[in-house]
Simulated assay, not measured.
Amino acid sequence: MEAVCGILVFLIAVGVYVACSLYLLRNPLIIHRRKRLEFYCRHISHRGGSGEKIESTIEACTHAVDVGTEMLEMDCHLTLDGYVVISHDENLLRQSGNDQTISSLKFQDLPLYKDKLEVTFNAKHYSSGKDRRFALLEDVFQKFPNMPIVLEIKENNDLLIKKVSFLVQKYGRDGITVWASEKSDIMVKCQKENPHMPYMFTMRRGLLLLLLFYTGLLPFVPLGESLLLFYLPRIINRTYIPEEAILKKRFVVYLLEKLTMRKSLFEHLIKRGLQVQLFVCNEESDMAAAFSIGATGVMTDYPTLLSNYIAKHPPPPPPTVY
Rank of each mutant, 00 (worst) to 15 (best):
I7M: 14
M71I: 05
T296P: 00
K258G: 05
N237M: 07
C41Q: 08
H196T: 03
L212E: 07
N282K: 05
D174T: 07
I293E: 09
D131I: 05
P233V: 12
A13I: 07
F141Q: 15
M287V: 06
E283H: 13
G82I: 05
E267G: 00
R204D: 12
F291L: 06
G206A: 05
P219F: 00
R26F: 15
P219S: 10
L247H: 04
L228W: 09
K312V: 01
Y214E: 10
V168A: 07
F251E: 02
P315Y: 00
L211S: 10
K258C: 04
M1L: 14
K35W: 12
I7Q: 09
L80A: 15
F10A: 13
S87F: 01
N156A: 03
L22A: 08
V168P: 06
L255F: 08
L159V: 11
H268Q: 13
G49Q: 00
S56V: 02
L22P: 03
D139N: 08
I161L: 09
K170P: 04
T239I: 05
C5Y: 08
K162G: 07
S184F: 11
Q142R: 03
V252G: 03
F107L: 15
K271H: 12
L305N: 14
F266Q: 05
F10M: 06
V221A: 11
M287H: 04
D99S: 14
F141W: 06
L259V: 15
F251I: 15
